[in-house]
Amino acid sequence: MSDATGRLDAAEVRAAAALVRRIADAVHLAVEVRREVLDDLLVCVLAEGHVLLEDLPGVGKTTLARTVARATGLGFARVQCTADLLPADVVGTNVFNQREDRFEFRPGPIFANVVLVDEVNRASPKTQSGLLECMQERRVTVDVVSHELARPFVVLATQNPVEFEGTYPLPEAQVDRFMARLTLGYPSAAGEAEMLRAHERGDRVGDVEPVADPTGLVQAIDAATRVHASDALRAYVVALLQRTRDDARVELGASPRAGLMLLRAAKARALLDGRDHALPDDVQALAGVVLAHRIVLAPEALDATGDQVVADALAQTPAV
């Protein structure tokens, strides 16, 4: 239990950290993924943030999302994006019930806890916009009636960064709603050989047993919100954001929403590390995956990248 000030006690911190570690260990049984990437993904889950998995086909993006859902005991749904996908296919629609002579709402796959939006950039802008309310406000409005989404609720969206035929680039407003952008990369030679051995008889995801449940995960999420962040740490986050906005190579820097997400992620990382307080180290470790995809570069900044802008901001901004 927390004390009267709302701060976490040691037992809560240990319980939440142990829960997330059990999830990570269970995921590793079925997916070959670098530990730091998995930790960043679980930080986002703990901070109730959505994740954009941007990588080449076949590196395990979909398998990772399915495995996380199984290990956490959460409901899972997959949306395969195509050009003809409609918003109603994702969020649901009202259907006329002839027996009862009334319309009733039929929820779409977005009402699961973990929603994999596969190849999100293949959906039309109209369908992509249907995700905005879901991701920001965690509810769906259909025919002026709002429907609350499940909790926890995490969108894991994938896109291929090298194939653009038949795709629609994500607008900045959509990208800004993802807490982090992660890249899985290719596994090591030893890891890939082990993956071949483990998966040669079939998909290992079905062998993963849940090591958590929605109630326990919500408790850990609530605990992450109560991790202490000092005024100095908040000022440090703001200084980083301002540095990205002042960079001459940048047309659009990190938004206030980016700062809020960075602070939430830092608090979740602190809890994952067994601490009841966030440090500048947490902010620095997550700044790249949280901020870089939000940076819109100026047209003349031909050789720059969002990652470089964030790295320079970190190097030039002293931690208090």
Rank of each mutant, 00 (worst) to 15 (best):
S2W: 14
A4T: 15
G6F: 00
D9M: 01
D9G: 08
A11T: 03
R14Q: 11
A15E: 03
A17K: 02
R21K: 07
I23D: 09
A26N: 05
H28I: 03
E32S: 15
L38M: 13
L38K: 08
D40E: 11
L42F: 01
L42M: 11
L42K: 08
C44L: 03
L46R: 05
A47E: 10
H50T: 05
E54M: 00
D55E: 06
L56N: 07
L56E: 10
K61A: 05
A65F: 02
R66T: 03
V68W: 00
A69S: 15
T72Q: 09
R78A: 07
V79A: 11
P87Q: 01
V91G: 05
Q98P: 10
R102M: 09
R102S: 06
E104P: 02
P109F: 15
P109S: 12
N113I: 10
V120W: 01
N121K: 10
R122S: 06
R122E: 06
R122D: 04
T127G: 00
G130D: 08
V140F: 00
L149Y: 08
P152L: 14
A157W: 00
V162E: 11
E165Y: 13
G166T: 13
P169G: 13
P171R: 12
E172T: 13
Q174C: 09
Q174N: 14
L184R: 02
G185D: 08
Y186C: 09
P187D: 06
G191E: 12
G191A: 07
A193K: 09
R197M: 13
E200A: 15
R201V: 05
V208A: 05
V211M: 08
A212M: 07
D213T: 07
T215Y: 10
G216M: 06
V218A: 12
I221H: 09
D222L: 11
D222G: 05
T225W: 00
R226N: 08
R226E: 02
H228A: 13
A229M: 07
D231R: 13
A232M: 00
A235K: 09
A235V: 07
A239S: 14
L241Y: 14
Q242W: 03
Q242A: 14
T244M: 09
D246I: 02
R249Q: 14
R249N: 03
E251S: 11
E251C: 11
S255D: 11
P256N: 12
R257N: 04
L262M: 10
R264E: 13
A266Q: 08
K267E: 01
K267C: 15
G274F: 01
H277D: 04
A278K: 07
D281Y: 12
D281T: 15
D282Y: 09
Q284S: 15
A287Q: 05
G288H: 05
V289N: 02
A292D: 04
R294L: 12
R294T: 06
R294V: 15
V296K: 11
V296S: 06
A298R: 14
L302I: 15
G306W: 01
Q308S: 05
V310F: 03
A311H: 02
A311P: 00
D312H: 10
A313Y: 15
